[in-house]
C-alpha cells in the first residue's frame, strides 16, 4: 500500500505540498490531476526517494521512503516524463543493460516478451532508441518495470506529448498492468483519460490535495465540472 501521511514540502520558504494525505490500495490506479505547480510531480518524487519531505512521510508497504528507500526499491519502478534511456542502444539492449545492473538475468526471448507485454511492436526492437517516439520509449520503461516485477509503478505525466493513438494504447497498458496487481500512482493533465484509466483521482491545487474521488462515482462531465470549480475558486 502507498500512503502519504501529512506531507509538507517546502522549497526555499514556499510550500510545494501542504499536509497532503492519501492512501492507494494494492492493485489500484491512482491519478493525481491539477495545474502546473500543483505539487503532483513533487509527490511522485517523494515516493521515489528523489526528494525528502519537510515533515510527514511517504510510505510504501509501511516503510518510510525517506528513511529506508532501499528496503522497497526492488518493488518500485518509476518512469519520468521525458524518459530517453540510452539512445545509442536498441530496446533489447537497453532492457538487457538495466536488467543486468539490477541483477535480473533474462534471455533475449524473455526480454522480447516483456517488450511485447508493454505494447511495443516487434519491428522496433532492433532500432536505436534515439529514433523512438516518447510513447515507444515509455513502453521500454514499462517493459523494464515488468522485468523487474515491480509492485508499484510511478508515472509522471505519461500521456503528455503523446498522439491520440498512443494515448489509447497507453490506457490499455495501464489496465493490463492493473489487472496483474501492480499499484500505480500517476500524474496527468488529461481528465478524460484519467477517469478511464484510474480507480481514484486526487485533485490538487497549490500544494493541497483538495479531494480524492472514486472514478466509478462520476461521469466525465461531472468530473470536469468539479475540477473546474476547484480551479476557478
Amino acid at each position: 500500500m502507498l500512503e502519504a501521511i501529512s506531507i509538507v514540502k517546502d522549497y526555499k520558504g514556499q510550500k510545494a505540498l501542504n499536509y497532503v494525505s492519501f492512501k492507494v490500495n494494492l492493485g489500484e490506479v491512482f491519478c493525481l490531476v491539477g495545474a502546473n505547480g500543483a505539487g503532483k510531480s513533487t509527490l511522485i518524487k517523494l515516493f521515489t526517494g528523489q526528494l525528502t519531505p519537510t515533515t510527514g512521510s511517504a510510505n510504501i508497504d509501511g516503510y518510510s521512503v525517506a528513511g529506508d528507500f532501499n528496503a522497497v526499491k526492488h518493488k518500485v519502478a518509476y518512469i519520468p516524463e521525458n524518459l530517453m534511456l540510452y539512445g545509442h542502444l536498441n530496446a533489447i539492449e537497453n532492457l538487457d543493460l538495466f536488467c543486468s545492473v539490477s541483477n535480473l538475468k533474462y534471455t533475449t526471448n524473455e526480454l522480447s516478451l516483456f517488450l511485447r507485454q508493454a505494447g511495443l511492436n516487434e519491428v522496433h526492437y532492433s532500432k536505436r532508441l534515439e529514433n523512438y517516439s516518447k510513447g515507444m520509449r515509455q513502453k521500454v520503461g514499462i517493459a523494464y518495470a515488468l522485468a523487474k516485477k515491480a509492485e508499484y509503478l510511478f508515472l509522471d505525466e505519461p500521456t503528455s506529448g503523446l498522439d491520440p493513438k498512443s494515448i489509447i494504447e497507453f490506457s490499455e497498458i495501464i489496465k493490463q498492468l492493473s489487472k496483474t496487481g501492480i499499484t500505480i500512482l500517476m500524474t496527468s493533465h488529461d481528465l478524460h483519460r484519467s477517469i478511464n484509466d484510474a480507480d481514484k483521482i486526487g485533485i490538487m491545487k497549490d500544494g493541497n490535495l483538495l479531494e480524492v474521488i472514486e472514478t466509478d462515482d462520476y461521469t466525465h462531465s461531472e468530473l470536469e465540472e468539479k475540477y473546474m470549480n476547484y480551479m476557478i475558486n
Binding site: T48, Q50, A77, P80, E81, N82, M84, Y86, F154
Partner: peptide, 12 residues
C-alpha cells in the same frame, strides 16, 4: 533526458 532519475530510482 531524466535518465539519471530513472536510473537512480530503478537501478543503482
Amino acid at each position: 533526458s531524466d535518465l539519471i532519475s530513472f536510473i537512480s530510482v530503478n537501478s543503482f
